[in-house]
Write a protein that binds this DNA or RNA. Structure first.
Lengths: 167, 167
DNA sequence: CCATATAAGTCAACAAACCTGACGTAAATC
DNA sequence: GATTTACGTCAGGTTTGTTGACTTATATGG
């Protein structure tokens, strides 16, 4: 709060400014999910399947409990989607290396292919936005987004950007 | 593409970088909606109600069709939520000033109070993230987010930020 | 004036993706 | 050996979305 130009500082925290920040998130998320959703619909799957496929691909060998923590859903809800993905050959599971109660999840070749297909559009969208906005803007984007995320999950992005206020 | 330091340009568009961009959106949206969802659950409402209340508050006198376009849902889906909000006294409607087929929607006093209560946390979250990240980062955030949003809706944010590459 | 188009609502049936609560099984740990 | 942990499952319920068909009221163009 004690900062240079406190008037300006206050100015851009006004209602309109904050509403814009909220709406940017709403519209971006809406458009970000629309295309994968359309692809998934043809495969009789939904957004929930995409999330599972994405994070299993992101963290090969991830445990079911970790996935629950990331997705913030109940195990019953995850189970329906995950067991379908396993049944249809997109995901495999095997016992944990030291703790055999665990199920370590991985994508099959088909799963990897589907993941690529689904995320392709999102990556292109991010790449285009990054390219158009420029490197400095990308840095700002990350910094603000990290601030929006609960502290517990910020650690996932270590090294993503310099700490805010550090320069 | 033809840019200064093309090596670096390419470097930060790598897979890891893009995945981070995707995940930031996922986690931010997840945490952004969690608290309002909790409040709504106590009122036997859901996220869909919040979206309607938010945008009716944002654009008083908005027509039903406009709302459909923003939310990207069918009128049957909106109808269920909207008619409940009208029935319970959060939203009112009256015929359009020139075209009497239209229903111009507005929040009642109760609706405004609920809107404030629901959005309060989101505004605080955005304000905190903006404050921590600094003005330059906020500019970058907006620029990247605009790039993620389909072109058709970017016009909603005119004046939100300088055009990308303009400086 | 009349045909057509538009804004909005409604009925019906259905699916996706969440939820709570209770209970089961296997393996690890104290 | 009792307890805890990781995971799964059965059962039942809600919200939020869908498609398709039909209605009402009003505006508009020929």
């Amino acid at each position: 709060m004690a900062d240079l130009k406190p008037g300006v500082q206050h100015l851009y925290l006004r209602d309109e400014e904050l509403r814009q920040g909220i709406e940017l998130l709403f519209y971006a998320y809406r458009d970000f999910t629309a295309e994968p959703d359309a692809i998934l619909a043809k495969l009789a799957m939904g957004r929930a399947h995409h999330r599972v496929i994405y994070f299993v691909g992101r963290y090969p060998g991830i445990r079911v409990g970790e996935l629950l923590g990331i997705l913030r859903v109940t195990k019953q809800s995850l189970s329906r989607v995950l067991s379908q993905l396993i049944r249809e050959g997109y995901v495999t599971h095997r016992p944990g290396p030291t703790d055999r109660r665990e199920r370590r999840l991985e994508l099959t070749a088909a799963g990897q292919e589907l993941e690529r297909k689904l995320t392709e559009n999102q990556r292109a969208r991010v790449a285009a936005a990054y390219r158009a906005a420029g490197a400095a803007a990308v840095e700002g984007y990350k910094r603000v987004m990290l601030g929006l995320i609960n502290e517990a999950d910020r650690a996932r992005f270590v090294g993503a950007t310099a700490p805010a206020r550090a320069r």
